[in-house]
C-alpha cells in the first residue's frame, strides 16, 4: 500500500479541489484522508455519509472541584496563562485559556484539581460517492490542531486500506509548516505540491520544500493559476528544478474550479472536458512517479 500526500503551504491554491478530483479518479482502489482539519472542506465535494464517528481527545485540561476548593488562590498565583480566576468563594478554570500544563494540579494543597482529557473534536469514517471510503475530522472551536489528530486520521485511513485491500491512501495535507504538516508528511511515499505563482505563494512553497527535503520524501509539483503571472511561474519552475522537485504540469486560471465546487462536484464530474482531461493527465503522471 502506498501513500500520497497533497500539500500547498498557503491556503487558496486549489489543493482541496484537486485532491477531491484525484480521489474521484482513484475511485474504489483508494482510501481518502482529509488531514486539513483546520479547514476540512473535502467532504463538501465527496458526499460522505458520516456513518461512524468517534470523539477525539488531545492534551489535558484542569478541572477544579468546587466542593473541595478552599479558595486559597495557590493555583491562580502560579498559572502563567491567566486561566484561573476567583468566582464567588471558589476558583474556576477559564477553559479557552488553559494549556493543560498541570502546574495547578501539583500545587493545590487540598487536591481539588484534577487533569481531565481534553475533548478537541471528532473523527469520522464515511462512505463517499466514489463507492470507497474517506476518513476525516472536525476540530472544535479554539482547539489546538496538533499532529495527534492528523496522525489519527492517517492511521485510521491506512488501517481501513489494509483491511479492505486497497492499494492507495490519498491524503489532503495540513497547511503551514508546523507540527500538523510534519505529521501529514510522516510516512508518505510521495508528496504532491499545489503551488500558485503569487509572491506569497512562492514564499510559502519555498518553506514547505525545505521541510520535505529534510524528510527526503520524493515530491512533485503542480502550478495552479499559472497564467496569472507568467514571470513568477517561470521563477517557480526554476526553483523546483534546482531543488529536484519534479514539475508535472501547469493549470491556467479557471473559474470552473469554483463553479464545479458550487455544484458540489469534483472537476471530473463538471462539464469542462478540457480541464478534466488535464487533471486526468496530472493524476496519471503522479501514479507513474509513484
Amino acid at each position: 500500500m502506498k501513500e500520497i500526500v497533497v500539500i500547498s503551504g498557503k491556503g487558496g491554491t486549489g489543493k482541496t479541489s484537486l485532491t477531491a478530483s484525484f480521489s474521484f479518479l482513484g475511485g474504489d482502489k483508494m482510501i481518502t484522508a482529509d488531514c486539513d482539519v483546520d479547514a476540512a472542506d473535502m467532504h463538501l465535494l465527496l458526499e460522505p455519509d458520516f456513518a461512524e464517528s468517534e470523539d477525539f481527545y488531545s492534551g489535558k485540561m484542569a478541572f477544579i472541584d468546587k466542593n473541595q476548593c478552599t479558595n486559597c488562590g495557590s493555583c491562580a498565583a502560579i498559572c502563567r496563562f491567566d486561566a484561573i480566576i476567583e468566582d464567588g468563594n471558589v476558583h474556576r478554570i477559564i477553559e479557552l485559556n488553559c494549556e493543560g500544563c498541570g502546574y495547578c494540579y501539583h500545587v493545590c494543597p487540598v487536591d481539588a484539581i484534577s487533569m481531565i482529557d481534553n475533548l478537541v473534536g471528532k473523527w469520522y469514517k464515511s462512505k463517499i460517492k466514489t463507492g470507497s471510503f474517506m476518513v476525516h475530522a472536525k476540530l472544535g472551536i479554539g482547539a489546538e490542531n496538533s499532529g495527534k489528530l492528523v496522525a489519527k486520521v492517517k492511521q485510521e485511513a491506512k488501517a481501513l486500506a489494509e483491511q479492505l485491500g486497497k492499494e492507495l491512501v490519498l491524503v489532503d495535507g495540513s497547511p503551514g509548516i508546523g507540527c500538523p504538516v510534519i505529521s501529514s508528511l510522516s510516512g508518505a511515499n510521495l508528496v504532491v505540491l499545489v503551488a500558485e505563482p503569487s509572491i506569497s505563494g512562492i514564499h510559502d512553497l519555498k518553506r514547505v520544500i525545505q521541510l520535505i527535503q529534510k524528510f527526503q520524501i520524493p515530491s512533485c509539483c503542480i502550478i495552479n493559476k499559472a497564467d496569472i503571472n507568467e514571470k513568477n511561474t517561470l521563477e517557480l519552475m526554476e526553483f523546483l528544478n534546482r531543488n529536484s522537485v519534479k514539475h508535472i504540469g501547469n493549470i491556467d486560471y479557471n473559474e470552473n474550479f469554483t463553479k464545479a465546487m458550487t455544484e458540489g462536484k469534483t472537476i471530473m464530474e463538471y462539464s469542462d472536458k478540457g480541464l478534466a482531461d488535464k487533471v486526468q493527465t496530472l493524476w496519471n503522471d503522479i501514479l507513474k512517479i509513484l
Binding site: S58, G59, E144, S146, G147, K148, A151, K152, Q155, C179
Partner: peptide, 8 residues
C-alpha cells in the same frame, strides 16, 4: 505513543 499530543 498515539496518546501523546506533542513530543512523540
Amino acid at each position: 505513543i498515539q496518546n501523546e499530543s506533542h513530543g512523540a
